[in-house]
Design a protein around this nucleic acid. Structure first.
Lengths: 102, 102
DNA sequence: ATAATATATGAACATATATTCATATTATAA
DNA sequence: TTATAATATGAATATATGTTCATATATTAT
């Protein structure tokens, strides 16, 4: 049974989709995004809660920011990060639920 | 506004979720899974359609099989692969649609 | 101005990953 | 049996990735 309606994926779509999933393919980034589900947090706060060093968190946040999965705002010396892609966060939530219930 | 209901992710969940997304984080594997959306295909057929060498396809299929994202059946010398995780395929489909409609 | 604090950045490094090549395995056909 | 075809496997390799360290930048306070 072959599929007559098959359409090959174009390069651009392929790149975008793989990049997005790459963001979710690392435990550290998952933990960060999971923390940001319902709250806005500073870099140091994230680092503290997840027991990660500041530089590491900053690098990962840059990665997520470049993909527009998170956004930030500055308040004095502190920079607060929060989620910025409902679709991806929903997928992450679903997958965590799916994995949790066996 | 801090989140009182926050529950840290356990190691096992974290590993499972990241592994699953890792499967979707590579263009070659996305193309393979995309081909398998509505059909069952042999290794050589996949390799031919996607212009990949046989060994590469075989390695990637093993990866996907280990995660139970695809299953296979043998018919003589030929082995046919098909999808085996509706949830993940649905997520992939959604993400492709999302990326396509810019 | 200097000091202190929060975050970002680049280099370095170790590890992970994708792909290819050569070869092994499995099944069929002659 | 030998030959052929389809797939799997392991080693090799080049590239990508995650983390740390040292340091730079930005903001506020003194």
């Amino acid at each position: 049974m072959s599929d007559e309606n098959y359409q090959p994926l174009d390069e651009e779509t392929l790149f975008l989709v793989s990049q997005t999933f790459k963001a979710l393919a690392d435990p550290t980034r998952i933990r960060i995004l999971h923390l940001l589900f319902n709250q806005e947090l500073s870099v140091s706060n994230i680092a503290e809660q997840l027991n990660l060093n500041q530089s590491n968190v900053s690098h990962q946040l840059r990665f997520l920011k470049n993909l527009r999965l998170v956004k930030y705002r500055r308040d004095g010396k502190t920079i607060y990060y929060s989620q910025d892609d409902e679709h991806v966060m929903k997928i992450l939530q679903q997958s965590i639920d799916h994995a949790t219930h066996h």
